[in-house]
Computed example of a mutant assay.
Amino acid sequence: MSWLEALLIAGAGLFAGGINTVVGSGTLVTFPVLLAVGLPPVTANVSNSLGLVPGSLTGALGYRDELVGQRSLLVRLAIASGLGAVVGAVLLLTLPAGAFKAVVPVLVAVALVLVVIQPLVAKRVAERTERASAHGGPLLLAGIFCTGVYGGYFGAAQGVLALGMMGILLGERLQRLNAIKNVLTMTANLVAGVVFVFVAHVDWLAVVLLAVGSMLGGVVGARIGRRLPPWALRGFIVLVGIVAIVKLLT
């Protein structure tokens, strides 16, 4: 790997760390870059999962104030996300390469619709039952498990999916949901990465370069994301999601 390729990977990690902290879809930047420098698809995918974990960690730490009072909910959803990631990692290693990715644009589009209508629907859910508003119920656990599966397999825009579902089923501010999202994506990437370490080839140089870049990006992303008003954050989520769909379809 040349120094220029190394710089390119680190730069992609920096951008992905920032965009993942604010909303998600950083994999749509890092994965193509890893392919461009010559990594095989599966190796690029598993290395990407491990390399973006530090960025999710610094992003979650940047949102630590928004996590206050959400410990019980966070633990439940993180377990669901982690279990889903194990399934997703196994699918990556056993299914044809294009089998799961074929439905990704549809999933992202659904997530964007959920984000847009979230204020209205969340209000109605809160009026209907306080329990659903506070914990999301089995439906949210199932949904986060599915995003974990997706995250373990590929992961692009898993943050958008998680935000969309939590926004509908939880009566919380978007910034607090974004804080939870950062922990969930970190959990999915970490668990899938651990599985990959034992059963797949990992390019450790790429992992280190992505980790350094994404760690810094997570810090920057948290500082920017926490200052965005709800309407701006929601608009940015929709914009990133649309770009994600376009890139996945081309």
Rank of each mutant, 00 (worst) to 15 (best):
N45C: 04
V46Q: 09
S47K: 00
N48Y: 08
N48G: 08
S49W: 02
V53H: 00
G55N: 05
S56W: 01
L57A: 14
G59Y: 11
A60R: 01
Y63W: 14
Y63K: 12
Y63A: 11
R64I: 06
R64E: 05
D65M: 02
D65R: 15
L67S: 10
G69I: 11
Q70W: 05
S72N: 15
S72E: 13
L73F: 12
L73S: 10
L74P: 01
R76S: 12
R76I: 03
L77P: 03
A80D: 05
A80I: 05
S81Q: 10
L83H: 08
L83W: 09
G84K: 13
A85E: 05
V87Q: 06
V87W: 04
A89K: 11
V90R: 10
V90C: 04
L92C: 04
L92V: 10
L92R: 08
L93N: 15
P96V: 10
A97D: 13
F100H: 00
V104C: 06
V106H: 07
V106R: 02
V106Q: 02
V108R: 01
A109W: 01
V110I: 15
V110S: 13
L112I: 15
V113A: 15
Q118N: 09
Q118M: 12
P119W: 12
L120I: 07
L120Q: 15
V121Y: 09
A122V: 04
A122P: 02
K123Y: 10
R124D: 05
R124N: 09
V125F: 02
E127D: 15
E127W: 06
E127K: 14
R128M: 12
R128C: 03
R128P: 00
R128Q: 09
T129C: 09
E130N: 04
E130H: 13
R131L: 14
R131K: 08
S133W: 01
A134T: 10
A134D: 10
P138H: 11
